[in-house]
Nucleic acid binder design. Structure first.
Length: 276
DNA sequence: ACGAGAACCTGTTTGC
DNA sequence: TGCAAACAGGTTCTCG
């Protein structure tokens, strides 16, 4: 799925097209995603003006002028695809929700695996929403520092890789960018989280911020069928140093090949020589 | 309380 | 070539 850079890219694309426009219709074509989409959602959101589209962790927030918010998560395979007003292309098999704007633009929420989420929440209840509670700091926020990360990892006996995927530690990283950040920080994914001292934490935070910023600048990574909101393809996948590069020489030391291991059921790519 | 693994679901790729 | 297993960007829930 979309990790932070992909979600950020989608949010920017959506903001351009949605802000200042009225949601004239929401069609629920299939409601059983990760959770049931409330049947009352279209009625509550229709007719209201979109004031802003924002991101928190990997969640998309579509804010409406009456204080309502559409809360969306793309899961592993979710996409938001813009359709121009004149676009008569038929909807596809996994288009579960279609939002229509007052200018005729449509946005379809397509999600093959249905791990995605769509919910309606009032602005005053957003902080307390079950899905947003307990989320860790935004990695690109200036407040996310080595000291903050070190404190979050303190005492954790889990491998560092798993700790960074935990959205309570830091919010927005996923499998790809964790692998990339660990590589740039020169830290082994297998290292126990609690062994990250202040010096390592600083390096790791710097690597996380750097790789995320570069990925956002590239418009994210397009994997398989993932396309950003504007329809363009992100190109960061061409800049992956280790992810999906099993068996290739390490781009830093060249003397060792990138290894793939499985940690808590997910692929990890790293250089056994550079990452300690 | 914590950490590992299963579960959710569908489609594509890989290996025998 | 054909079929089955493995794998895919995430998160929650259960179990030890």
């Amino acid at each position: 799925m979309p990790e932070l850079p992909e979600v950020e890219t989608v949010v920017r694309g959506l903001a351009r097209r949605m802000a200042g426009h009225r949601l004239s219709g929401i069609e629920l074509r299939r409601g059983d995603l990760r959770w049931r989409i409330p049947k009352s959602l279209p009625k509550k959101a229709e007719g209201h003006l979109v004031t802003a589209v924002e991101r928190r962790a990997k969640y998309i927030l579509i804010r409406l002028d009456d204080g309502g918010i559409l809360l969306l998560h793309l899961g592993m395979s979710g996409r938001l695809v813009l359709m121009e007003p004149e676009d008569k292309t038929p909807l596809e098999r996994h288009d579960h929700v279609v939002m229509t704007l007052d200018d005729g633009t449509r946005i379809r929420f397509n999600d093959v695996r249905r791990f995605g989420v769509l919910d309606y929440v009032r602005a005053e209840a957003l902080e307390g929403h079950k899905l947003l509670q307990g989320l860790g700091p935004e990695p690109l926020d200036p407040g996310f520092t080595g000291a903050v990360l070190e404190a979050a990892l303190e005492g954790k006996r889990t491998p560092l890789k798993a700790a960074l995927l935990d959205q309570r530690v830091v919010a927005g990283l996923g499998n790809i960018y964790v692998c990339e950040a660990l590589f740039y920080a020169g830290l082994s994914p297998k290292r126990l989280a609690r062994t990250v001292n202040p010096e390592r934490a600083e390096r790791l935070v710097a690597a996380i911020k750097d790789v995320l910023q570069r990925a956002v600048a590239a418009g994210g990574s397009s994997i398989r069928d993932y396309v950003q909101a504007t329809g363009e393809l992100g190109y960061f996948q061409h800049q992956w140093a280790v992810y999906d590069h099993e068996g290739e020489p390490c781009p830093r030391c060249g003397g060792s090949n990138i290894k793939r291991i499985v940690q808590s059921g997910r692929s990890t790519f790293y250089c056994p020589k550079c990452q300690r």
